Structures are given as C-alpha cells and as structure tokens.
Simulated assay, not measured.
Amino acid sequence: MSVRTAIRSRSIRLLAAVVIAVLASGLIHTPAAHASVSYGYISGASTVTDDFGDEGTLKRGGSYAYTNATALWQWILYAEGLISKSGIDCQFGPGTETATKQFQSRYGLSADGVVGLNTWKTADNRLSLTDSSYPEADVVTYTGKNGGKAVFNRAKAGESYYSFRVDPYNWAGAAYFAASRYCGGF
C-alpha cells in the first residue's frame, strides 16, 4: 500500500469517526418526520386528544398552503368563531393567518400565525370521540371555546385519516397533497 493510499484511508476513517461523534453528541439534530405528512393525510389513532400532535406545519406560503389539510384547520377556526364558513377555501391566506393568530392568542400561545406542533396540540385538547359505532369511521367533534363545533370522520382502517363533510353526501380526506374540488363552496 502506498503512503498516499494509507493517508487517504486514515483520513476517511478519521472523518467518519468525527461525523459519528458529532451525531451521537446531538450537536446536529435532524427534526423528526411528521408521521401524518408521510402518510399524506391528517391522521390519528387510539385516543383522539393526541391525533394532531404529529401533524405537518401549515402556514401562509408553505408547502401545504392550498390543501385539504388547510381546510381541516379552517374548520377548526370556524368552530372557534374566527372565520366564516365561506372562509373555508383550502387556502392558507391572510385571513387564515390572522384567524390562526387569534386562535393562538386565545389559548396563550405565541401568535405567529403558523400552525406548528404547539398549535396542533392545543387543538387536540378540544377533540372528542362522538360516535365509534360505525364500522368504517369514528365521528370526532372539535368544540371551540365558545361552543362552536366542527365534525370530522376518522377512518378506522390503515392510517386512520381524517375527513370533513363537503356536502350532505360527500366527505373529503384531509390531504396534504391536494385541495378538494369543493374548496370555496362550503
């Protein structure tokens, strides 16, 4: 083995050891993946009051700003009396951002207008299992501080994704990747 090859081999081993040590020390932290985003839908299982704790971030101009996931958040804002039903348009625009700040202030959170983990967890606390007698889905109700309500279905199979009613006969899944054709018509 040549001197050059020996030095290169030793350098690579040293670099690998440094990388492993840094990762093990926690100096480099990679955020945990949001389980529901990887499923593609807002989802949950078991106890409903912990369903939203691993959801993706919703914000104006963000990756999921025009999706059914945003519409589900808007239903929560509607139940809180912070937006009108016509404001449920699947678009995280200035009105949704303002209403989100009002929600955050109402519950003692930092009012940044971004639906992150703390905001989702606060919404979790207002969920209740209304009816689990249906074989295909649980009925879950969000109750706002002033008594307003939003009703969701939580599928019982697979990743247990959430859906919301779009008309008397149809439900739309709370997807992170698409907006319903019903957006703006609730």
Rank of each mutant, 00 (worst) to 15 (best):
V115T: 08
R154S: 06
L58Q: 01
A71P: 03
A32P: 11
P168F: 10
S105A: 10
V139I: 15
G144N: 01
S43M: 11
W73E: 01
P168R: 13
A99M: 01
G148Q: 00
A175Y: 07
L72P: 00
I42W: 01
S2Q: 12
A137T: 10
G56V: 02
A33N: 03
H34G: 06
A175S: 15
R126H: 15
G53S: 14
R8F: 14
N118K: 08
D112P: 08
D54C: 05
P31L: 13
L23W: 14
S180K: 02
A150G: 06
Y134N: 07
M1P: 13
V19I: 15
L15Q: 11
I12Q: 09
S180H: 00
G158V: 00
R154N: 06
V139W: 03
I28H: 10
G173S: 14
E136C: 08
K101Y: 06
K145I: 10
V139A: 08
Y176W: 13
D50Y: 09
V22G: 10
V114D: 03
A71V: 04
E136T: 14
G185F: 12
V140Y: 04
D112M: 05
S46V: 03
Y134A: 05
P168M: 10
K145Q: 08
A79M: 00
Y107S: 07
A33I: 12
S11E: 14
S86W: 03
Y176L: 12
T96A: 12
D131P: 00
V48R: 05
Q104I: 04
G81D: 10
A178H: 06
D89W: 01
L109Y: 04
T70I: 11
G26H: 14
I42N: 07
G87P: 01
F164I: 09
V48T: 03
V114A: 06
W75D: 06
